[in-house]
Structure formats: structure tokens, C-alpha cells
Design a protein around this nucleic acid. Structure first.
Lengths: 204, 204
DNA sequence: TGAGTTTTAACACGATCGTTCTAAAATACG
DNA sequence: CGTATTTTAGAACGATCGTGTTAAAACTCA
């Protein structure tokens, strides 16, 4: 049918998504209006709806891009390190980012976990999936550390991975309300200390 | 001036606040409309505004009542127990409540920490104050446990209290998105195990 | 160049938001 | 009993919400 081609877009789709990430990350899904998005992205609502669908789909794509840019990369970096170092580096990186952000936006996924996930089954699955991926990273590193003797066997790898995931979530919450270095460091330090092999641990 | 007295209220203020707690707890501040509140409380918007002020003040009072009813009581119960038992009982109670709630509402304070605190300085202080109170409970119990030898001295009481607060926050987040008993138990167990005195610990 | 297609811009839609207004209903005090 | 005062009920306010419409602008291909 269509032999003639069309007018090209004037905007950079990725830059627009980045601007949307800033909006949604800072204010959450519900509190961000389409007019906010229009203002921060610089394009009109018609272009937004045409390119990304409705507000919900726009959020979905922004969240996907956030995960791809902020979480997947971090996991890959830390996966390449020795087990304990990888876990420590993961938390150190999150800590540094949290304290460096003057807006204290925390993590967009954790924010979404309490904002949009509880009443939207699809988003809940997306968020749960991301958390499962982080947990899988922890599990993999803990198992590797238990195998090479750098991490305690006094508790199962699954339990330790669950704990690390919980600590990460708590860190993200506290970073928003009480972004005090000593507090956040104190959240992390015992979790890392806990990984140390104890007397009962010995190579097989 | 006024010598004639007025028409009495037809509603029970505490029951209305409880209904408001259910609304705000479940959906958060921004996502709860005044019409939702009118429906669930059973009284009209005029009565609401007359008795409690605007929506924000209404939320404030509901949050105060929630803290008084759900958090202060728990702290007082656990304060009366031996140090380690008190901490363990605190988490056990939160865990049981989290799993028993079919709506997975989590904690209203933690929800508020990500919903309304980041962009409202007054609410941020309220939330931070509640978290500080919980942290003070943990600190008191850890110090008592370190004094009587039931809790390790391998890390400072402040650090351990920070960690416990973080674990609690993480537990509350995960309870909303992934309310799986094994996961939530796994978050808690290592934090409690961490408190155990190690070889290096000995009474003075 | 002209036909075809998409993006742009601006305006406007109905719905819902938090809040207020107007009056009627209900009580305590003189 | 009458008056002052407050709480009710319900409609209605302007503002903003997410979204759709209309028509002009911009571009590719035949």
C-alpha cells in the first residue's frame, strides 16, 4: 500500500526516554503528569502518544531503559569480580550513587515496587523479575564464594542471597528518607561481615 | 460570644480515622482521592474537611494513629523482653503480619517514606522520626544484649542497629512485591544470626 | 513534481481532582 | 421557646488529569 515514506522524527528517542526516566524516577508514576513529561522531554503530547503509546506504556519503556542502563550493567561489572568483592562492590556502588544524588531519588525499581507494583499485576511482575535477577546475582556470587571458601557455609546460599536482597531494598528506602553516610554504611557493613567464613567453615 | 451550643457529631472520630488508615495504607496518599475517603468513611466531604482539615492534614492524623496503634505498641511489647528475644520477636511479629495480610499493604510508614516523604519536608521529618524511634529501640536492645553477653561485640551497637533498621525496611518492601515466606524468612534469619556472640566475644 | 504517509503543533474533550458553598437538620443554652 | 452554633447533605467550583482531534508541516518514493 504505502509507497511514499514519511516525515522523520525530530527528536532522539533515547534522549526523550532519559528525560522521562528523570521524571518518573523522581516523582513516581502517579505523581508525574503527562504535562510534566511534555515539559521535560520538550516534545508535544501528540508526539509522545504517537511514539510511545499511553502514559503507562511510556513508563514501562522508561523503566526498561533504566533497568538496562543502571542495573544490568552493575550486575555485569560485579559478576566479573571475585565473589566477595563483587558483592561488596555492588553495595559500594549503590551506596556511592545514593549519597551522590542530591535529589535522593533512590532506585527507580524500588520506588516502583511501592508506587505502581501493588496495584498493577503487570508492573508487579516486571519489578519482581528485576528483583529476582538481582537475587540471582547474589545467589551466584554466594555459591561461588562458598565453593572457594571465601564465604561462610554456616547458612545456605539461598538464605544469604535473600538477606542481601533485603538489605539492598532497605538501603534504597533509607537513602531516600535519611541519606546519612554513617547510617547507610552501617546497614551494609554487617551484611558483608556476615559473609566471612567462621570457625565451623572448612574446605571439604 | 456564643452562648448557644452546637449540633454534636454523628460519627466516631477514631473509627473514621481507622477507615482513612485503610485507604491511605492501601493506596498511598496521592492515589487516594477524597471521594475514596468519603466512600470508605461513610461521611461527607464537608464533614471531613470540617473535622480534620484538608486531605494532607487528614493523612497526617491517620498516620499518627497508625504509628500509635501499630508501631509504638510493638516496640513497647518487645522492649520488655530479653534483648535478643525482643529483637527476634519484633521481626517475627512483622513477618507474621506481612504474610497474614492478603492485600500485602506492608507498613504505612515505609510506604509513606517513598510516596509522600521525598517531596514534603514535613512528612519526611515525621517518617524519619518514626524510623529513628525504631532505630532507638534496636540500639537499646543491642546495647543491653552486648552488656549481658547475649549479643556480639564484634560490631558497634550503632552499626548493628543501623543494619537491623535496614533489614526491617527491606522486609517491608519485599513483603509488598514478593510476599513469599521463605524469602522473607531468609531476609531476617542472617540478621538474627549475626547478633550471636562469636569466639572473640567474652564477658569483661 | 505530486502522491502518500507520518510527525508536528495547538486546541479541546470528558473525567476526576481537592476544595468550597448553600441550606437544611440538630443540638445546648438563655 | 427561641437563638446561637455546628454538623450535615449535596451540588458545584475551578484546576488539572490522561487522551483524542484537526490540520498544517516535513519528508520519501514513484
Amino acid at each position: 500500500m504505502g509507497d511514499g515514506m514519511a516525515r522523520p522524527r525530530e527528536f532522539d528517542e533515547e534522549a526523550v526516554l532519559d528525560a522521562a526516566i528523570q521524571c518518573f524516577w523522581n516523582r513516581g508514576f502517579e505523581a508525574t503528569s503527562v504535562r510534566d513529561l511534555v515539559e521535560k522531554t520538550g516534545l508535544t503530547s501528540a508526539s509522545l502518544y504517537n511514539a510511545f503509546g499511553d502514559k503507562r506504556a511510556f513508563f514501562q519503556k522508561a523503566l526498561d531503559r533504566y533497568v538496562e542502563g543502571s542495573i544490568v550493567g552493575r550486575i555485569e561489572r560485579c559478576e566479573a569480580m571475585p565473589p566477595r568483592d563483587g558483592i561488596a562492590a555492588f553495595f559500594a556502588e549503590v551506596l556511592a550513587r545514593s549519597l551522590a544524588d542530591p535529589q535522593h531519588k533512590g532506585c527507580m525499581v524500588v520506588n516502583a515496587a511501592l508506587d505502581v507494583a501493588p496495584h498493577d499485576a503487570e508492573f508487579r511482575e516486571v519489578v519482581a523479575g528485576v528483583l529476582a535477577r538481582i537475587e540471582a546475582f547474589f545467589l551466584d556470587r554466594v555459591e561461588a564464594g562458598q565453593a572457594d571458601g571465601t564465604i561462610t557455609r554456616s547458612q545456605s546460599a539461598e538464605t544469604l542471597a535473600h538477606h542481601l536482597l533485603g538489605v539492598l531494598m532497605g538501603l534504597r528506602v533509607l537513602a531516600r528518607v535519611r541519606p546519612e553516610p554513617r547510617l547507610l554504611e552501617g546497614v551494609i557493613a554487617p551484611a558483608l561481615a556476615l559473609l566471612s567464613p567462621t570457625q565451623g567453615d572448612q574446605a571439604l
